[in-house]
Write a protein that binds this DNA or RNA. Structure first.
Lengths: 143, 143
DNA sequence: GATATTTAAGATAAGTTTGTCCTTTATAAA
DNA sequence: TTTATAAAGGACAAACTTATCTTAAATATC
């Protein structure tokens, strides 16, 4: 469904969103430990998120990553879009280059519903929402 | 969502299912042309489907691939399972090794619905069903 | 039985994703 | 101003997927 990079991105962003605002600066090491991901690879992914302004970073001692108030409202849809592209939301399930209502692949209609279900859910789910489940111990970021 | 191998497998199986029963033997060349796929790679995928008895093959002159009556009732679910495994139907969306009701990932519940939607659809859709859309020109296998 | 045809199987190559390592840049603190 | 720390960036390596090529095996036709 999602690439590993994308899974790391989502978990990392949710993790940072669980930290108290204003006191949420956290280093790479902590992040990759919290989500059980390879450190250097995670760094690359965070770089992309920083460039896309979904996350901010501070270099130097006591540096790290922070996620600001607005960014905590980021939808999961946006993270997938930035890391994996939106192929999963818009692409043809059977790989036809030009799959459309006028020229539908074999499963076009059946998949439309699923894609819409997925996109809708991802579009209406924010980091904030997900962070809540982690904070109260209902949901988990690793193992 | 699905690997290329899996997309080729589904399209190939649907294509063979569109041919009239009893007169449905078709060669690799025709298949890969009908679904616009690389010939040698398609051959590898068909080999797997033959081994799994979803398809039968005949070597030699006038050889090719055939799909028997029962096999036309094969569900798309089965093809995905054979080519990609059932990770997509059962695996954790965020990559947790042990994601479950008791130890759910951040999106566990929201994804459950989508996975069930997908699995249900794939489980209730057969090659036969899809072949009909191709036969009457409503749906397409390439471009 | 010899020949031609077609799938099976194995080796290998190309491309992509995942992962690591090393150097550079920024910056806080001494 | 120097030093230490942490992210950024580039190069490279490993693993996996996709794709190709060559040889082997099976079989229909002559």
């Amino acid at each position: 469904m999602f690439s590993k990079a994308c899974k790391y991105a989502i978990n990392a962003m949710i993790y940072i969103s669980t930290l108290p605002q204003g006191n949420d600066r956290v280093g790479l090491k902590d992040i990759s430990q919290a989500i059980n991901s390879p450190e250097a690879f995670t760094a690359k992914i965070l770089q992309i998120l920083v460039k896309e302004n979904l996350l901010s970073s501070i270099k130097g001692p006591n540096g790290g990553f922070e996620i600001h108030e607005d960014a905590r409202k980021t939808q999961l849809y946006r993270i997938v879009q930035v890391i994996d592209g939106d192929q999963i939301f818009t692409g043809c399930a059977l790989g036809l280059e030009k799959c459309s209502e006028d020229h539908p692949c074999a499963v076009h209609n059946k998949f439309k519903a699923i894609r819409e279900h997925l996109a809708g859910m991802m579009m209406t789910t924010s980091l904030e929402d997900m962070a809540r489940g982690i904070q109260n111990g209902t949901n988990f970021l690793k193992i």
